[in-house]
Amino acid sequence: MTTLRLAQGATASRILGIGSFQPERIVTNDELSQTMDTTDEWILERVGIAERRFAAKDESLVDMAVIAGANAVADAGLAPSDVDTVILANCTMPTPIPNGAAQVADRIGVKAAGAFDLNAACAGFCYALNLASDLVRAGSARRVLVIGAEKLTDWIDPVDRANAIIFADGAGAAVVGPADEPGIGPVVWGSAGDVVDLIGMRDGVIYQEGQSVFRWATTQIAPIALRALAVAGIEPSDVDVLIPHQANLRIVESIAKKLRAKGAREDMVVADDIVYSGNTSSASIPMAMDHMRAAGLVKPGDVALLVGFGAGLSYAGQVVICP
């Protein structure tokens, strides 16, 4: 009988570095009110967004992913040649073939990389982060570059006040590598396919049933976050930073309130990157973490709870130690 040799992986994994990128163009609520029936006050009250970033017409999802990914590699103190796998989480590539990850890897300088795209919409970064962690621990990869990048403005009706006020463009990234002590906890993930029609594409543009999605997120996501803490052996009071997908400020605040009711500290820092970045789908969690670190709100060693949720309806959450 032939016995196959198995790869030997790391004891644990951790995030080695992070990076992000946003386009230059800032779009305010007042600017949007010039093309649709809305106001700054209405948008702030409904979703909590003051401004967002829109990419230029010739600025692609891949372009943004390259910059965010290169920033993460540099932040980790690595050279591109130190990375062997690239995962690009997104749901807005203009075509399904070729995938974006191989293009990103080549442009960053990660040659002959294992490279693939992953589509779990707004939960994509958390899905990809767990997959990267498992690859490192299984010995299938040594260091994995995980990128969430979206150009949502390619897929929205610019005069649809229900969606054009929410979505934006950008990219965030993290490098995952081996560790002696766990820096990425087990994932809690799943899907609610029975309500898949709440978010999707229709006639080439994104639509969502806003009130139904809001009710689903505000009732279902906090329990998922608590399960992610439980499987990681972490109490709510241990969490220093909560970084949920930046879908809607009211949803973010609802999740934080429910976690505090279960023992999370009042001084737990809560990401509110949506106020100035909008909803960037799979990019929102890593981008928020990078922005919070730059602002001094997140420091190395902090215990962070990540939870992504969106179209599918897919969700995923895990505890990480901030780099």
Rank of each mutant, 00 (worst) to 15 (best):
V110G: 02
L198N: 03
E31T: 00
T2F: 07
A123P: 15
G317C: 06
G77R: 14
P236K: 00
E266P: 05
Q34C: 00
P300Y: 13
A138D: 04
L229T: 15
G77N: 08
A294Q: 13
G278K: 07
A232Q: 07
S281I: 06
A121G: 07
E41L: 01
V176H: 11
M292I: 07
T219W: 13
D194F: 10
D160V: 09
A164Q: 00
G124Y: 03
G69N: 11
A89P: 05
V188A: 05
A149N: 02
V195G: 09
A256C: 11
I206V: 15
F125L: 09
I166H: 01
I87T: 05
S140H: 10
A138T: 15
G9H: 14
I156G: 08
Q208K: 04
L131K: 06
L198I: 10
C122R: 05
K111H: 13
A294Y: 10
L229D: 12
V307W: 05
C126E: 10
G296E: 01
S237W: 10
S81E: 08
I234H: 12
L16E: 07
A120W: 10
M289I: 08
T35V: 15
Q246K: 06
G185C: 01
L249E: 03
G19S: 05
V319K: 04
S284R: 01
R161N: 01
A50Q: 09
V239H: 04
